[in-house]
């Protein structure tokens, strides 16, 4: 094992999770603090209420605490933790129907928005995102907001890769309807990214 690998986030997470499995509360706290920001930012895209966000994060880490000993290194620790958060969030959103609160954005005055402005394009995006089924939206956010690969999202959502691709395809097609200015901009953008 190289010193670099020892210090990598993956190695650090693995070491922390092993300590958590052995009942080390300090390791759990360290893991909690290292994941709180990204989980809170991710969840805040679905619910504006911090008490809901906190409940999901804390429920997630209760599961991490209870099940750390069952982790078998079949995936990265981060994928495993975010997978628990995904399932906890999905249950919470379905139970509390929080995403329906976001659905009330359907009442936005569509005709008064000039879609050429960047800010208003973001409003159209919010509008479109709010109309996606929660699984499609979570998949989209996992890819674009969290930066997960196709395979990681398949593990996180416990779905075949084909299902993840299908969710992204449908999400894009629905969003295209709500983002009318995006379709015509292809020629202005470079064909290659990066």
């Amino acid at each position: 094992m190289t010193p670099l690998a020892k210090n990598s986030p993956k190695e650090r997470d693995s070491a922390l999770l092993m300590a958590v499995a052995a009942g080390d509360r300090r390791a759990l706290e360290e893991l909690y603090l290292s994941y709180h920001r990204r989980l809170a930012r991710f969840l805040s895209r679905f619910t504006p209420r911090y008490e809901n966000i906190e409940e999901i994060i804390n429920d997630t880490f209760m599961v991490v605490w209870q099940n750390a000993k069952d982790f078998r290194n079949a995936s990265q620790v981060s994928t495993w933790v975010i997978g628990i958060a995904y399932r906890t969030a999905l249950k919470s959103f379905r139970r509390q129907k929080n995403h329906q609160i976001v659905h009330s954005l359907e009442d936005y005055p569509e005709q008064t928005v000039d879609p050429t402005s960047d800010t208003e394009v973001t409003d159209w995006l919010k509008h479109g995102l709010s109309r996606l089924p929660i699984e499609q939206r979570l998949t989209l956010e996992l890819a674009y907001h969290m930066g997960h690969s196709l395979e990681e999202i398949a593990v996180i959502t416990d779905c075949p890769v084909g299902t993840v691709k299908a969710r992204m395809f449908h999400a894009r097609e629905k969003l295209r309807q709500y983002l009318p200015t995006l379709g015509g901009g292809a020629s202005e953008l470079p064909a290659r990214i990066g």
Partner: peptide
């Protein structure tokens, strides 16, 4: 290319 532009704009808008 058109789809790619759509994806890129969605990603940029989300972030």
């Amino acid at each position: 290319r058109d789809d790619l532009a759509v994806h890129k704009r969605i990603l940029e808008s989300i972030n």
